[in-house]
Each structure stands twice: as C-alpha cells, then as structure tokens.
Design a protein around this nucleic acid. Sequence first.
DNA 1: TTATCTTTTTGATATATATCACATATGTAA
DNA 2: TTACATATGTGATATATATCAAAAAGATAA
Lengths: 226, 226
Amino acid sequence: MQNCKTCIIRSKAANTLNPNELTILMESCAETTFNPKESIIKEGTLSSHVAYLKSGLAMVSKKGVKGIDQILKIIKPGNYIGLQTVLFEKINQFSVTALEKCVVCFIDNQSFKELISRNTQFANELLIFLCREELTYFDRFVNIHQKQINGRMADIILFFSEEIYNHATSFNIPLSRSDMAAFICTTRESITRAINDLSKTNSIRVSRKKFEILNPEMLKKISEKG
Amino acid sequence: MQNCKTCIIRSKAANTLNPNELTILMESCAETTFNPKESIIKEGTLSSHVAYLKSGLAMVSKKGVKGIDQILKIIKPGNYIGLQTVLFEKINQFSVTALEKCVVCFIDNQSFKELISRNTQFANELLIFLCREELTYFDRFVNIHQKQINGRMADIILFFSEEIYNHATSFNIPLSRSDMAAFICTTRESITRAINDLSKTNSIRVSRKKFEILNPEMLKKISEKG
DNA sequence: TTATCTTTTTGATATATATCACATATGTAA
DNA sequence: TTACATATGTGATATATATCAAAAAGATAA
C-alpha cells in the first residue's frame, strides 16, 4: 500500500481529492516496479485496475490485422494508463510496455469509479485529460498520413525533445529502430535511411540511441514540409 | 429554446439529469437545422458551445500539413460533437460538416460545464463516451495502416452497413468519392478502382452512392485479409 | 433542350517505400 | 576470450498506390 497523501508526483486529478478520498485512493493503491521491456498491461487480458505512471517512460501498443504491433503513444510520468478500459471495456484493448525502469501505481477499478462519483472535480480533470488525448490523436492521425518518412522521423525526434525531455537538444530515445518504425507506421530499414537522410542535412547527429539536434529550425522545416 | 424535457432523442448523459438540471440544459440550448455540406463547426474559430446531433449524419475533419482535409470520423444522431474543445481547448481543432439535413442542438459552454460539476452521473456518461471513442480511434489507426485499399474500402462499406444503417444490406453512403478517400487516407482514383475490384468479386453492387452488399462473408474476408 | 460545371472513371506513368537478402555491428552468456 | 543471439545497416528489387491527363458521365442553370 502506498502513501498517496505524501506522494509528490500526484496527478492533477488526485490533487482535487479531500483527505477522506485520498484515504480511499491510498487503501486501494499498490505500487510496482517494472524493468525495461516488461509488460505492464497485456492486450486481451481482463482489466481490473487503472494504472498510474509515477516514473519512467512506457509505450501503448496494439496488434493489427497483420499481427504487427503498432505503437499508439508514449506515456510519460504523471499520466493514467488504461482509463478507457476501466470505464468502458472489461478486456484490455492494448498492451503497455515499460521502455525504462518504471514505477506504476495500480488502483482498483471499483475504488477508482467511486472517486469519480464522489468528486466532480476529479471526474472533470479526467474529462480534460481524455479530451486532450483525443486532440493529440487527431493531430497524429493526420500527420502520419500526410507526411512522408523523413518528416515523420523529424517528428519523433522533436516529440522526444519537446514533449518528453523538456526541450533538451541531446537525449536518448529509449526505442529500438523497430519500435520507432512501429511508432510512425513504417519499417526498420526506412527508419535507418531516414536517420541517414536527416544526418546528411546536418540537422541532427545520431549514434545508436543518442540523438542530438544540431539545427532545430531545419528539423522543424523537414517536419513541416513532409 | 428547446424543450429538452420532452426530447425523445436525449443523450444517455442527459437522461441522468434531474428536472432542475434539465431546465438548465433547456434554457441554454438552441436548435438549428443544417443542409448537406453546410458547416456546423469550423476549424480555427472560437468554440463557445457544445453541439449535440439530434438527426442526420455529419463528419469531423481536420486539415493536414498538405492542406488536405482528412475525415476523422462520421457522427450519427445521439452524439455530442466538440466535447474536446469545450472542456479543454478554446479554438476548434477540427471542422464538422453536415452530410445530410442535420438537426443540431447547441449548448452554451458554461452551462454544460455546470452540469458536469453538478451531476457526477452526467460526467460519468461523458467519460464513458470519450473512452469508447478513444478505443475506436486506436482500432481505426491500426487498421488504416495495416490494411491496403481494398480492405479499407470494404471497411467503409461494412461501417455504414453495421454502425450507421443497423446492418442493412442496401443503403446510400452520403459521401463523394473524394470524401471516402479522405476517410481512409487514399485518393479519389483509388476509391474508384477499389470499388471496381470489390464489384468484380461479386461481394458488392454499386451504382453512384447506392451500395448493396451481395456477399457479406466475402466482404468481411476482404476486410480482414487487408 | 443546350451549355457549363462538377464529379467520376479510366489508362499510362512515376515514385516512395516495402520487401528481401545479406553484411556488420552490438550485446550477452558461457 | 569465444560463441551465439539480437539489432542495425546497406544495396537491389518489387509493388501498391499516387500522380497526371484526358475522357465520360451527371448535375445545374439558362
């Protein structure tokens, strides 16, 4: 059992809870640590808990008709995982896998639902969270289809720089080339070639998983022109 | 002003409201009729209302980097449009266009938010609605990328048959060939060819916008094998 | 009706990217 | 260290689909 009252990485939603409600959360919350590549949630299994990512990065993926896994999104600390299933479906519709060492809190479905009905602010924060996500998908959906591979590769790099690493210019992307391919709907080989192309423009420097942005303007231009 | 108390196509969420709350809804609700191709919500404008589709079909679309509109989803009666923007963004991130004669209720943002905070069941129904949508996108995202055009064309036809027209085998699809292309991320010309291919297998018969499913099993097989 | 505009169809061609096959590098366990 | 597994890189080739161009069919208005 966790002490949610003193948790410093509490969600915006959890911050709306009063002491009583925090006790409910606390008593139904269990913390687990995952190593890289370990499965946090597995597609097709019964869903019994909401997960909350306290630290580390994780990815959400889903199997397609070809049996190939597609990465739907990367999750960063401070976000709920699997809200969809808790509230609506009983079977997990996607897998979640740790990309790094991850600390995850699992909250019992029933208690989570109780918090939603007890506290409208809590529900409201969740609504806002889901709405924000939906808009992100819209963007992603349109981008993936209208940009070609170099543009999409630039997007991965900008995404990790801006969204994940707080505008850092040098960072590690904890994805294999195959993972990146699954993220932007292409192949391992095309990722290699895209990285080569971008490197030739001197907008980035890459060595294995280490990415360095040399010319952000040019990278953004490549991202936009497709 | 509408009489929401006697409205027979009330949303599941609105059904959770008590008489007082229904009065709030009623007093901030205005009904408008749209003709086919008329714009219900325009991307880039300020959002001031939630829309609720009482009758007719509408489509949600978004401009991509190439300036080409991509159709994100088709909306059928009994669904809210633009929840995302009301709760989170101020600027409309997408356009909504009537595909047929549509009756739409516009509910003032403030009142809508008030209903969410007053009634947890109302909020809960909205949460469930958003969760269901998210899962639908996941599916769509993966399908669009792993299936080739004939499979995706089969999906459009099955979608209208099953989701929109209650498993009818003969129906009109109120989309132009270009719209269909924007829906499954391809081109007008490829849609024509896909329809030809499917017709040659005798699984469908098409004349202009009228689609007839002759062999549902075969159509599903085409949808699945990609 | 004819004239004009828009949408759809059809064929020829171009092209971005997937696929395949193999080489090379990297990581890991004995 | 060696041996083996896994991940990545590279070149050659295939292919699904986009693009282009022009014809045909429908829709609309005078």
